[in-house]
């Protein structure tokens, strides 16, 4: 892998280089290293597919976590891994799989951590039920205390 930092600093810190050469390199820099071509291809491929697939892709992507990011779904993230995962989702959609099948597929590969919406399991019972239990308990507490005060 090319050392970006070194390359970039070399371009920028030579004050003798005139502005326009710098700009030229800057553009070249993008062109060379951001692997835009593969992405372009993948985007262009799906241009003809219908809007419904795009929407479903977005829907599914929102539910899957980008594994290398800080609490972002692969829909929001621009990380390379997130893009790869979106491509994975897309290819599965084109294969005609349903939303649940695709999520299951990704879940099998990456584990619970990839799901933005935690599953209802033994170890998430507390997570899912506590708000509702708290609410009912609080309500009962207030109502019974008030009754007592009347007597």
């Amino acid at each position: 892998m090319v050392n970006f930092r070194f390359l970039y600093l070399m371009l920028i810190d030579r004050s003798s280089l005139c502005k326009y050469i710098k700009i030229f390199f800057l553009i070249l820099f993008y062109f060379l290293f951001f692997e835009a071509d593969s992405l372009k291809a993948s985007y262009l491929d799906t241009e003809d597919t219908n809007i419904e697939l795009m929407e479903r892709e977005r829907e599914i992507s929102g539910l899957l976590r980008c594994l290398v990011c800080q609490n972002q779904s692969i829909l929001e993230s621009n990380a390379p891994l997130a893009k790869d995962m979106r491509l994975l989702v897309r290819s599965q959609l084109i294969d005609g799989k349903s939303n649940d099948e695709i999520i299951d597929y990704v879940h099998d590969r990456y584990g619970d951590f990839v799901l933005m919406k935690p599953l209802f399991k033994k170890y998430t019972i507390f997570l899912w039920l506590s708000p509702f239990v708290f609410f009912v308990m609080g309500l009962l507490f207030i109502l019974t205390k008030n009754k007592k005060s009347k007597t």
């Binding site: 929102g62 609490n71 779904s73 584990g111 619970d112 919406k117 935690p118 170890y123 998430t124 997570l127």
Partner: peptide
């Protein structure tokens, strides 16, 4: 066990 709690939750 690693889980994520995201916007859907």
């Amino acid at each position: 066990i690693k889980i994520s709690v995201g916007p859907p939750y």
